[in-house]
Amino acid sequence: MLVEFGPKQKIATVRITLSDQAIKPMRLQAQLLQWRQDLHGAPVTKPSEELIVTPRIAELKPGQQQVLRLALRGSLPAETERAYRLVLEDIAQPSSMDVGGGAAINFRMAYDLPVMVAPRGTIVSALRWRDCPADAAPRASKGVCVRIANAGNRRVKVQSVTVSGDGWQQALNLKEADAVLAGAEREWVVPATAMGPVRGVEVRTATGQVLRADPAGG
């Protein structure tokens, strides 16, 4: 599920329903986190006060529904799409699972939803690429390693990455589209048998759009 604010939207809602088949109530605690990415797409988060969510704690019994309201603070939206995560954690008494030998594992349910705030003005799609540094060579032993930066103002959902050189071309097709947030840089290793410098990089998005990346600094 994706929660998305339009460019002129200040409030969004999330509707949560606890199944009437649930065996016990839930007590959900909501937290909003600023969302960034590392080179491999793993989330890098920290608490954020740029949005507020109410209620912060919601009690749901089986069959009940709760509406959470998310609101922007200050002058948002900005020139560039903002990315957050809404984490809903069940803070009720944790469930336990008997693993034998008198031992048990306690666990809590948590839900993690992306929240995107659209940028003002025209959407700009722009990518930059560069070779991976020398210390990335072990990861690229079976292919060509490139880093692609999203220099546009909105996320790009990458379905495939194609690299080409003098007389050769190779593609990496992803099983699932992989989002690159605005301002983020991602690293991919494209399987390739050809040896030679990369001259060009193209990305095909989840919608079928083909974006040609410019060399970084070019």
Rank of each mutant, 00 (worst) to 15 (best):
N173M: 11
P119T: 02
T45L: 02
P197I: 08
D214Y: 01
R27F: 10
V53D: 04
Q169T: 15
K46H: 09
S96W: 07
L68C: 11
F5M: 06
S75P: 04
P94S: 08
Y84C: 04
G183F: 09
T17Y: 04
Q93R: 14
Q209T: 15
T193G: 10
R85M: 15
L88G: 00
S160Q: 13
D38K: 11
V201K: 05
R36V: 02
A171F: 02
S95C: 00
T54N: 12
A110H: 07
P77H: 01
S96Q: 12
E202F: 04
Q169E: 15
P7H: 09
R154E: 14
D98K: 13
I52C: 00
G121S: 06
T13M: 11
G102P: 03
A216K: 14
D98S: 10
L88H: 02
A136D: 08
T17L: 06
P43T: 12
D20Y: 06
A206N: 04
G183E: 09
A194C: 08
G41C: 04
Q21C: 06
L72H: 08
P133E: 03
V87I: 14
V210E: 04
K24E: 15
D214V: 15
T45W: 00
S96M: 07
I91R: 07
G74C: 00
F5K: 02
T205G: 11
A12F: 00
P114D: 07
A110L: 13
A103F: 14
Q93I: 14
D20I: 10
L60K: 05
L39I: 13
P197L: 11
D131R: 05
R154H: 13
G41P: 04
G165P: 03
P62W: 11
T205W: 07
M195E: 10
V115F: 01
A12T: 07
G102K: 06
V146R: 00
